[in-house]
């Protein structure tokens, strides 16, 4: 178990390093940074000034080691546009994105697991069909458009929730639905197919032969085994949701990491972009690691290895 965790951590670290190299080299490939920071109206002297100020005149390797050394200490340099420490910006925005992600995950799990279980138990019934229809349409819906539609319906027409802003919890409801709906189909399908498979298993017949109540058979014996891959998927989906927050936070004007990233991208504020890409990648890596460990905890057969 510990050897496994150690090995996975090692891989995770090297993946993180690779991504930071990639982030950095993308930046270098993008042309003369000083020029893009200065903007089209900057004079040659101003550009030279910027170059020295941001250390862009030094060799690439030196720039990289400086950046990565900073990153390890959670220092991602200064933002070109906001004129403040990148890390301060991130720390300020992170809670919004995390709240959004967790809420979206809760919605996705809360919808997909019960629906998947019922669909499997009532296979071929109208409820199964409806669940599959939700899955198919959910995967086909562009999430930014779904978000806009939610705004029109629930914020403008019905006025149940605010259309934008993260000041109150109501502001999170619509974006969390928009983000969570996108992850629901995959988890629901996995729950449904897992339940169908498990319900056919011999140990379910054993449980019934013991005269256990239907609820015990379904929840203790079937769901427990069917849900293992769903939990792993949920962790990975949360990683994807943090990445997908760019779109949803922009649509709903939430002051989170995603919106910060989008603002930074449109203003060529590369230290911020680099930092956010790396942070989200790290989150994803940690989440997949957690997914693996959760798998091992939930499935005794994996624990021994």
């Amino acid at each position: 178990m510990w050897a496994f965790v150690f090995k996975r951590t090692l891989i995770a670290l090297s993946v993180a390093l690779t991504i930071s190299v990639l982030c950095f080299s993308l930046l270098q490939l993008s042309g003369d940074l000083a020029l893009s920071i200065g903007g089209p109206e900057a004079t040659a002297e101003q550009v030279e000034q910027i170059r020295i100020e941001y250390g862009l005149d030094r060799p690439v390797i030196e720039q990289f080691t400086t950046w990565i050394w900073g990153a390890v200490q959670l220092d991602f340099g200064r933002s070109y546009y906001y004129q403040s420490e990148v890390m301060d910006l991130v720390v300020e925005r992170l809670p919004v994105t995390m709240t959004l992600g967790m809420l979206a995950l809760a919605i996705a799990l809360g919808v997909s697991i019960p629906l998947g279980v019922v669909a499997a138990l009532k296979r071929g019934s109208w409820i199964d069909r409806a669940a599959m229809a939700i899955a198919v349409t959910g995967q086909a819906m562009p999430n930014f458009w779904f978000g806009l539609t939610l705004i029109i319906l629930f914020a403008v027409k019905l006025q149940w929730f605010p259309a934008a802003g993260s000041d109150s919890w109501q502001g999170f409801v619509l974006p969390a639905i928009a983000l969570g709906y996108y992850a629901t189909p995959a988890m629901m399908r996995l729950t449904r197919s897992g339940m169908l498979e498990v319900l056919e298993a011999d140990y379910i017949r054993t449980a019934r032969a013991k005269g256990l109540r239907t609820g015990t058979v379904i929840f203790k014996h079937a769901l427990r085994n069917a849900v293992i891959p769903v939990v792993a998927l949920a962790a990975v989906e949360l990683g994807f949701m943090l990445g997908g927050s760019v779109v949803i936070e922009t649509v709903f004007s939430l002051r989170g990491l995603g919106q910060l990233a989008w603002n930074a991208i449109s203003r060529n504020d590369y230290p911020v972009v680099q930092a956010i890409v790396l942070i989200i990648a790290l989150f994803y890596i940690v989440l997949t690691l957690i997914a693996d460990i959760l798998n091992a905890v939930l499935d005794p057969r994996l624990r021994a290895r």
Partner: peptide
């Protein structure tokens, strides 16, 4: 898989 697709694509597209 660890790279957030939308974010990376946005950043790259804005660069290029």
């Amino acid at each position: 898989l660890a790279m957030p697709v939308v974010l990376v694509a946005l950043a790259m597209a804005s660069l290029m």
